[in-house]
Amino acid sequence: MSRLSVPDLESDAGPSGQVHAQIKKTIGSVPNTFAAVAAHGPAALRAMLAADTPLAAGSLGKSDKEVIKLVISEAASCDYCVAAHSYLANLAGLKPDVLEQILEGQPTGDARRDALVGFVRKLARTSGTVSDEDFAAIKAAGYSDAQLVEISLAFATTVFTNVFNRINDTELDFPAVA
């Protein structure tokens, strides 16, 4: 059970209920992490969702965005986010064996994806400090300057949910990852 209580937001006409209703209308259900943030900080959830808007319109593919979020979540040991982003990465076309390779730090056989995984893992381990060699490697893999901005934004929004879920011990509503 999560640490923060989440009241029934279905009939809440206030800011929390409005955010809850908007998410439910958009994606059909409200993940537990969004429900908890909406219940206690609707403005924070709106800000988080607004920060994801440029990512949706950006040039990174869905699978790249989920790989970024998965790698960061694994580095933060956020079981909730690892489960969520594994599920979403699978929906974006990544096969379970590839997800397992990513989580185990093994090569996936896709040089561009492996460069992204290595770069994001380095960002997570070094609080964003990368060497000239790390920068050259991600650029050599074909990632543009604009995509480096998108990688940074995906990193930042994921850290928020990782930290929140670790504080809340958010109950899983996605398939658990072993």
Rank of each mutant, 00 (worst) to 15 (best):
E104V: 11
L94T: 01
D110S: 13
P96V: 05
H85D: 00
D97T: 08
D114S: 09
T108W: 11
A92V: 11
D97S: 05
P107D: 14
S86P: 03
D110G: 09
S86K: 01
A111N: 11
E104G: 12
R113P: 02
G93P: 01
L103N: 14
V98Q: 02
R113A: 04
D110K: 08
H85G: 01
L88M: 08
Q106V: 14
H85N: 00
P96R: 02
L91S: 05
G109N: 07
F119Q: 12
I102R: 13
T108Q: 08
V117S: 12
L94H: 06
L99W: 02
L103W: 06
Y87T: 15
G93L: 09
G118D: 04
D110P: 15
Q106D: 10
G109M: 10
K95E: 11
A92Y: 05
Q106A: 12
L103E: 10
A111Q: 15
Q106K: 14
S86T: 12
Q106T: 10
D110I: 08
G118V: 11
F119S: 09
A115I: 01
V117N: 10
D110W: 13
L99F: 12
D114F: 06
L116N: 13
Q106I: 09
L99D: 02
V117C: 09
K95G: 01
S86I: 12
A111G: 15
P96Y: 05
F119I: 03
Q101G: 13
A89V: 00
V117M: 01
E104T: 06
D97N: 07
A115M: 09
L94R: 03
R113T: 10
R112K: 09
V117K: 09
N90Y: 07
Y87H: 13
Q106F: 06
E100N: 02
L99H: 12
D97Y: 00
N90D: 06
L91Q: 10
G93D: 04
I102P: 00
G109I: 03
L88E: 00
L99G: 05
H85S: 00
G109H: 05
E104S: 11
N90M: 11
L94P: 00
G109V: 08
L103T: 14
V117I: 10
P96L: 00
